[in-house]
Each structure stands twice: as C-alpha cells, then as structure tokens.
Nucleic acid binder design. Structure first.
Lengths: 204, 204, 204, 204
DNA sequence: GATGAATGAGCCTTCATTCAT
DNA sequence: AATGAATGAAGGCTCATTCAT
C-alpha cells in the first residue's frame, strides 16, 4: 500500500505479499471459471494454492471479495471499448471484420472470466453490474459507429442498434459454443449484404 | 406410470399420486427458475408445496432427478422444431419474421425453464445435453430451410448456418435482455437486405 | 404445535419430539451453566445429548435461540414475585426472615440459571432484559412491602429502597459466594435492629 | 525489568520497551473492559495500539498473560485494604460513611478493571483468585474493625461478618447498578440503626 | 401415501499463535 | 524491537438424504 503511494522501493516482503495476492487471485480465476464460484470452496482454493485456508482471509475479506478482486484484475471493459470504438471515418466493410475478429479473440483470451460472468450473471451480485455495463457499452459504441457510417452514406439508413446486436451477439455465441474464427468473414458479409438473392436485392 | 402404459382405469390413489407428482414438478419449476437450482433447498420445495420434506423423495430419487423431471415435463424441443421447421416452399421474406416472432413468443412463455437452462448450462450436468440438443436442432432446422430457399433462388448462396444463427441468437438475446418484440421486423429486414447502402450493394 | 391449539391427543411421535426438545434444553441449561454460553459449542451440546449436531437446528433456530428457550423454560420471575410479595399485613419481624430464606432457597435451586444470567448479564443480549426486569421487580416489591410496614408503624420512616436492596443483595451475594443459610437470621436481625449499641440506639 | 532491580541507568531502548509495555497494558485494559476479554482479539489490540500483532507476543506470553498484566498493574487490593482498614479507635458512626463513600469512589475510578473482574469472575481462570482475595480481605478488614467497635462498646454484640458484608455488597451493587452516591448516608444509617420503629426497638 | 425426526458431511469464517525477515 | 505473512484448529450453521412411524 505505502509502496504505491510513496514511490519508495518495495521491500522483498512486500513483493512476496503482492505475489501471493496475485497467486490467490489467479487460483480464484482458474477454479471459479472451472467449477463456478458457488461450487468452489475455500478449501479448494487453499489446497490449489498450496496455502492454509486462513491465509485467504488475510488477503481478502471474504470469498466474494476474492471474486471481486478476480474481476477487477482480469476485467476487460477497457479493451472491449477499444475494440468496439473504431475510427469513425474508416469504412464498415473494413472495420466490422476487424471488430468481429478482435472481439472473438478477446473473448477467447478472457474465456475464464467470461465463463464466470455468464455463470454469475443471474445472482444479482454486485459483480453483475460491471457485466451489464460492459454489454451496454459494447452495443452502444458499435451502434454509434454504424450510425456514423450511415451518415457518411456508406450504409443504408436502418436501426443500427439492431445490427450492432446482431454482430455482437452472434460473435459472442460463436465464441461460447466454440465455433472457430473462420466463420467470421461470412458473418460480416451476411450482415453487410443480407441474404436475399441479387434480383430481390436490387428490387428492394 | 402403469396407468399410462396399460390403459387400465387408474385408481383414485394413482390419480392423486400423479397430481402430487405434477404439483411437485411445478413447484420445482417455479422455485428453480426464481432462485436457481443450487439455491433452492428441499425445505423450500416442501414448504412451498405444503408437504413434508420426505415426500419429495417418495416421488423423485434426488433433487437432481426433480430437476430432470421438470425439464422433461416442461421441455419444448418439439415446439422449437415446429417453429423453426417451416414449410420449405414459402418465401423467406414471409417466413423469417413469423419464425422470429414465434420464437420470441415461445421463449417468453417458457421463460422459467429458459432461466433454468441458462443458469445450469455450465454445470456439466446431464441436463445440459438436452439444452445443447435444442440449440443444435434449432439452428439445423432453420439452416436447412434457408438452404432450401437458396436452392429455390430466393436467397443468394451463402453459409446458411451462419445466417440461421444470426437470427436465433439475436432473437434469444433480445428475449433474455427483455427487448420488446417491435424490433423483430427490423432484425429480419437487416438479415435479408444487409446494411450496405444501395451504391455499395450494387458494386458488391 | 397443533396439539396445543386443538386439544387433540398428541401422537407418540409428537411426544417424543417434545421430550427431545426438553432434553436439549436441559442439556443446554447444564452446559451453559457449567462453562458459559459462549464457551459451549454446538458439538458439546450434541455430544452431551447424544445426537447429531444438525438436530439442534431442527429444534432451535440458533445457539442463541436455545439459550432463550432455556431461560424461558427455567425462568423463575413468577416465583421471585411470589416470594417477594408477602402479605402486607404481617409484621416484618416475621416476614423478612421468611423472604430471605425463600430467596436463598430459590437461588440455590435455580443456581444453574442464575449462573447463566450472571455470566451473560454484560453481553447486551436480549436475555439481559429479563434479568434486569427480575431484579427491579424484586427490589420494588420488597420495598413497597417495607413502606407498608412503615405506614403500619412497625418500621421507622426511612428509605425503604435502600433497606430492600440491603437484604436482597446480601442474600444474593451470600448465595453466590456459597455462604450457608444459617447466617440469614443474623442478617435479618441486623437489618431490623441495626448494629449500634443499646445506649446509642436510644439516643438516636 | 533489570532497570528496576539494579538501579543502573536504563538505556533508551529499555525505556522505550517499558513504555510500549505500558501502552499495550493500557490498551488491554480499555478493550477488555469495553468488550470483554473473550471478545477482544489480538487484532483488535494491535490495531488499537497501532502495532503489529506479533509485537504483543514479544511482550506477553499469551493473550491471557496480557490480562494478568493488566490486573497486576491496575489492581487495587492495597487501596481497598487502606479504605477498609480504618483507624480502630474512631467511632463507627463517623467511619462507616467514610468507608462507604471511599469504596464507592474507588469502584468508580477503577470501573474498567472492575468490569473485567465481574465478567471473568466465572471462568475459573487464575485471575479469579485475586478477585476473591480482594473480596475476602475487604470483608475481613471491615469485619475486624466492627468487632473492635463492639469491644469498645459503641456497637452491640453481633456477627460482624454479616454486617460487614451488608455494607460492602450493597455499596458494590449500588456501584454496579449505577446508583448515585447520595444514598450512601441512608445506607449507613440503616445499618447502624436498623429499620425497626422506636417502640419495637426498645422492646427488642 | 405421508410425515418429520435424525444424520453427517461440509461450508465460510475467526482467531490465537508462530516465525522468517 | 518490530512486522505481518502463514498456520491450523475450531465454531456456528446448512442441507441433501434416510428411515421409523
């Protein structure tokens, strides 16, 4: 704590403590993601980390606090915003695939935390707020970008919230169901061009 | 059980037993959906049903068996198949909106069971198989219909699995996030026509 | 429960359950009195009663609820009131010794509960209210009786609250410190006659 | 320690250590008196004293040892003896009120330690011996003084142990129940003169 | 068919104490 | 002298499940 406020060089013990803290958080991430938070016992955590049960309470106030610490350290809302907040003057035909692929990759990298979020999404725990925030931000950012491209004349006028959700939800479900990334170009193509045949498309 | 196999007239006792069984299943549906299966105790169930705890074990082997019975009775895979397996010779421009709306309505009607599925989807329990089955069947049926419409020349050739999933997942997420049905036409329209502007659409 | 509301004959099981409840309360009385409530574990109680730990929670909501049940069943406020509310027209020279002896005997009989009260008196628990009530009632009753005897001319005018407390506290402390009952007559005699020598007593 | 035995000039370090020791004892007195010994954790003590938990074990063998140290430093048996061992040749009519008032004041000043004694009096700990010692000494001293006054002819012959306890216990309970000092003269008056009316008193 | 008393394993958390630094 | 990380043994309580009635 002090070490961060005053820019004093941290002692070896402080470093060790911080390492232990990280270790416990990572153990939490692994076990929570594997078995769910509710099905992970303090015993599991302690055994898996190779420490006594009591030590966990030296670093975290409760089992729930550990969960929050896991989310805080491994959270990825900033990355989601970066991924979904693309340059507004680049064409959607380029950007959307990049967005889809970046999101797909991000979700895969953060798969353990995503699993935790999905599992705990219903518990009404504080944690859920961050998750919903994340979902709403993502949809909003992409939707605004699409609206900008409509204004720029690249895209036809339409409800961009709907199209944004089509992309996000489908990518997310692809990831959750383990579908490979190779379908992403087809997904973006379908979103851009629709599925109607050429004759009908011209008529519309 | 016997009463249904052999078409013998069921005794009054058998009728009462069947009614009890149904009552317990419905109580299970309500409580599991409200608080989650893991957070529902046998005591809760018994109290809510107005019976003794022991009686539940007279009708079901375990708490998990009750969950399976709930899923079995209130499952809706047939309905999903019916909804998603439309007449192959009707045009997608008519059918897809019907499908989207029917699915939206079905998910709303079956909301309690859906909630259970979503919550328990991760537990690796037997139950999950049914859920995945349902998802796969749904996507497959719709995908095959779309392929038929491609063959019929109504839709352009494309990966119909992807487009089928775009529809299903987006409708499902709409339902889960509480979005109203009024967006469904725009969803279908976007899927059919894409979001590109007319000039680019012609270029493509 | 029903058995008490409707005057139906209780079944054997109900009787057994009531017996078990009493047994647990008596076990609680014994252990709480011996080691104190805080130092008595659920394990102790269960082992001493020869039942599983969980059973205690079948009969009582919590360890504290068991304590309250003990107090409720073995409480003795009514008896205290009876002992300390003597016939107002009998002379103090007879009554006070009877009161002292009755109180001494009562405290000895109820020694286990008294010990519990004394130990828990400081915890600010709900329980304490009953105890204080008891003390206040006792002092008040006796004080009023003494005032009546002053009016009757038997006792000289004085602060009867003080003299009531002198009797009660001294008897109580005698009991707590294990002093035998044989000192009680001397106690009452001293209270009635004071300790001044005859000459000074006449001067006063 | 050495510093006190050998009258060598204590080093700065020794002085600091002694100060620390006193600080910890005073912290112990405050917390033990406020929340009780059993409900005070080492963590509480360390936090309240602004030191690390481990340091407490540098100065005291155990939590119980700290309690004993508190009692040792803040004990007041000598003062009690002084208060209760009055000049044997002064009349009780003067002395007893002084004794009652001095005891009342002493108990109020030492209230924190008294609270500790009262709370821990039942635990069968070593500590209790000191407490009982104190009680016995007090009663004995006062009793002997009263006996001397009997011999001197000021007081009538009676069991002076009983009258001594009447005074002590009542004063103590007055203090514990928060009664104000203004009742003390009436208490002493009642003890000296009894509560019988003049006619009966003469008859006796 | 129905009851609810009884079980026993397990959960989260607390805390006095030790010890390497 | 001082720190605080680490331990390990309980402690109160919950709950799915069994079984005698």
């Amino acid at each position: 704590m002090k070490a961060r406020v005053q820019s004093r060089r941290p002692t070896r013990r402080e470093l060790q403590a911080e390492a232990r803290r990280r270790q416990l958080i990572d153990t939490g991430l692994a076990l929570f993601s594997e078995k769910g938070w509710e099905n992970t016992t303090i015993r599991d955590l302690a055994k898996s980390a190779g420490v006594a049960q009591g030590l966990i309470y030296h670093y975290f106030e409760s089992k729930e606090a550990l969960l929050m610490a896991v989310v805080e350290r491994h959270g990825f809302l900033p990355e989601v915003c970066r991924v979904l907040g693309p340059a507004y003057d680049r064409p959607a035909s380029e950007v959307l695939l990049e967005v889809a692929q970046a999101l797909h990759r991000l979700l895969r990298e953060k798969a353990p935390l995503v699993r935790i979020f999905v599992r705990e999404a219903h518990t009404g725990r504080e944690l859920v707020k961050g998750w919903n925030e994340l979902l709403r931000h993502g949809a909003k950012h992409l939707s605004q970008y699409l609206a900008a491209r409509v204004s720029a004349g690249e895209l036809r006028p339409h409800n961009t919230e709907v199209s944004a959700r089509m992309l996000l939800h489908t990518v997310a479900m692809f990831q959750l169901s383990g579908a490979p990334a190779k379908y992403l170009p087809e997904l973006v193509d379908t979103l851009l061009n629709g599925i109607k045949g050429p004759r009908e498309a011209k008529d519309a």
